[in-house]
Write a protein that binds this DNA or RNA. Sequence first.
DNA 1: ATTGGTAAATTGGTATTACCAATTTATCTG
DNA 2: CAGATAAATTGGTAATACCAATTTACCAAT
Lengths: 249, 249
Amino acid sequence: MKAERMSDQVARVVEKAITEGQYPVGSQLPPERELAVRLGVSRPTLRQALTTLAARGWLETRQGGGHRVCQHLGDGFSDPLLALLSNDKDYQYDILEYRNALEGMAAWYAALRLTHSDRQRLQACVIELERSHAAGNAEEQARADADFHLAIAEASHNTVLLHSMKALFRVLATSIAESVFQIAGQGDTADRLLAQHKCLLEAILEGDAESAQRASQAHLGFVESCLNESHRQGRQRQRGLQAFNVMPG
Amino acid sequence: MKAERMSDQVARVVEKAITEGQYPVGSQLPPERELAVRLGVSRPTLRQALTTLAARGWLETRQGGGHRVCQHLGDGFSDPLLALLSNDKDYQYDILEYRNALEGMAAWYAALRLTHSDRQRLQACVIELERSHAAGNAEEQARADADFHLAIAEASHNTVLLHSMKALFRVLATSIAESVFQIAGQGDTADRLLAQHKCLLEAILEGDAESAQRASQAHLGFVESCLNESHRQGRQRQRGLQAFNVMPG
DNA sequence: ATTGGTAAATTGGTATTACCAATTTATCTG
DNA sequence: CAGATAAATTGGTAATACCAATTTACCAAT
């Protein structure tokens, strides 16, 4: 049986120390030279291990500044395949369908679990949407759009969902900006998008989970219909998003 | 402005070479000593870069055997925070809600896009579920359960969804096995779970997207109700899964 | 020509030592 | 006490050496 290599063992040991709270979020690990001695390995081997942990999002390092446990776990890493798919036009409908499920879920639970501070946060996000819409700034609109949807995800109080949506929006940043830019040139489309965001907010604030979910899905359906319907290579597929939107309710 | 470190630049260059097809899936990278010379860096620096790519799931390495591009991209990596949340009892309801959304979506699109080979694959999976159920083997039941749900995800023909569900089931393997084991001791529960799987299959085979989604959600609702309802720490939350299940339809 | 065994070559993994560059800390001066 | 500067500490890179696993080449037997 093939033995696990030393640097992977070290990575496991350090990762376990992090997850068990020996190195709390934000704290600094011991210096490399010291940690290497403690763990009985050479500095290059330790650095292999720490590189692995950094790639997984556990650590952030700065030359001279030490290795620190990431302030927001999961924020330092990105799923390379998700990133690849998100920036490939062949998968833009896959991405939209996926968003539809996650954002529909977020809207549903946000409507059910909204706290007072969630309310304030969402209202502030919509104000920012209005502001960037009035300014006609596509980049700010894209950022405000992502902030709004992530605020809904936070209001859902489902940590797993929030984590997945953060990962998704991180890799979608570029293509969302492009979509907003593309859509901005289509007459009253930007006005309609803003109206949809407000409608979604209203449903959430009213605690109407079904309406919130429908509003979310209508919004994404509209986004889909606005996008450039370039020919879709590969499989002949059903345009599921439209159908998915008319889920009973 | 802080310069990007050399090993991260090398990682980017190699990752780009992979994604652009210079190193196709399954192919072997040039030996370290040669690649280091080509890229003008030292072997330790190259190894830092390759370690990062391996941690992200792009590469698999074996001593003496070379560095190879992973056969199944995305399979070599796991999201550490997702893994952490999946094995923490405080988040088991978050996980169930998240599965509810993804598996509901998978069932929906599988019903719409089912191919002939998908049919065969799903039917084979259910046979395997029946076999492991009859044998009373919890570990095989857990594996058959995951295989069935992943086969549905494949039948949805949404690559992003499939990728996310694979990642989720990879980290849930342990806790699903525990759930199956826990549930197995509850009278006719295993029989009812098998019946639910069959009901879900029927709805998919009939191309009834709404029924498929409801069957999926009923299944997870039942799983939730069977699980040990341990006290839920932290926030006072609504039991959203039950409500989510009775989505109109 | 094929198969199995063995040696050699090639590959990745680990270690030691040295030095560079960024950051942090200590010290000194006004 | 604040600011400047030097020293110490930290991470980053490099060269060289050697170990261990895998692959390849070679040879003998069938």
